[in-house]
Design a protein around this nucleic acid. Structure first.
Lengths: 182, 182
DNA sequence: GCTCACATGTAATAAGTTACATGATTTC
DNA sequence: GAAATCATGTAACTTATTACATGTGAGC
């Protein structure tokens, strides 16, 4: 249901093709808290067309592959607002990294350090990307959401940088796998 | 694969029943970044038993319903460590709330305010629950992870409290649904 | 000539959710 | 006597992931 909602969200601002919707999911200011791939977007759009939430027109420029440009209908807008207000609003957060942190003794500190390095780099990249988007943003709501993301990711990064050594020390007392069997 | 990994994680520390594993998922120090329901735990355990990652014994006390107590095998331990180190470590974060924030003009500021109130209360409850767990925690790695969670959730809460009025102002300029159709 | 970006889609599979089905024991 | 907790599981359904399949045009 989330891909659906996301497609309607995009289309509520402007017409778009499936390809463009996916690009927005990957690079837009949504990318922090939404994910959608072709395999979920195209079927979603097809289904919503059947239900009358969206329509499409074909655009054929000479040579270029033809595009299906989707538009949201009034019914679609109503469905979007309804979903916005009726869907559960709790965040979904899953972190394989925190599970690794919790069991870091099993993998040892070298491996852990490496993963932390990667995570730090990843977070820094993400934050700087969002800051860049913030500069370009003209929509105040988008700016607000971006800042929300930036401040939580920054807190996460900060904690990680400040406290990594503590965890690395814990991981130093590695549990050998042979001992593990008792 | 994540329910699987989570079950192995629990069992790597102590034997447990499916029921207990689910309780841990709901209330333990995992609850912040993991979710698992009966519908995913029981099938997972059954499958892992077939693959030799876990075994179980039955415990029948007079009267009480019989319990299937699962134990991890050496093969299971190895599989766990392997999954810990080989699985993707990126967080999964989905936020229907941030989508609502982004389109708050469509729902208006009254509705938004209400949702923010609920979210603030929810975050405060979650944070205080985690602080309580932190006090009880004797495992340094669990404490580290809990503090990680507390600091990011606190940043999130802080941002929300400080900047909610900004968003509420944006939502004040509500887009009427009739106008929406253009 | 190669690779990247544009462009649409399907099929097989994986994974998890929700509700259902059942039943005992304990606590208020 | 009712409700909560303990306890196991299944079945139908929803949803998304991954890989496959296909093809054009532009720039290097």
């Amino acid at each position: 249901m989330s891909t659906r909602k996301f497609c309607l969200a995009i289309l509520s601002s402007a017409d778009a093709t499936g390809y463009e919707i996916r690009k927005t999911a990957q690079m837009g200011h949504f990318s922090h808290f939404i994910e959608a791939s072709y395999g979920s977007i195209y079927p979603s759009l097809a289904k919503m067309e059947q239900e009358g939430l969206v329509t499409w027109r074909e655009e054929t420029s000479s040579g270029k592959p033809s595009r299906k440009i989707y538009s949201i209908t009034q019914v679609g807008r109503e469905a979007f607002v309804k979903e916005l207000s009726e869907t559960a609003l709790d965040d979904l957060f899953r972190s394989p990294f925190l599970l690794l942190a919790l069991y870091c003794r099993w993998v040892g500190s070298e491996f852990l350090s490496n993963e932390i390095d990667r995570r730090v780099a990843h977070l820094e990249l993400k934050i700087s990307g969002m800051k860049h988007q913030l500069e370009l943003s003209s929509d105040p709501a988008a700016s607000w959401t971006l800042e929300y993301g930036i401040s939580t990711l920054s807190a996460s990064l900060e904690y990680l940088k400040t406290n990594r050594s503590k965890l690395e020390q814990i991981a130093d007392e590695r549990v050998p796998q042979t001992q593990a069997a008792e």
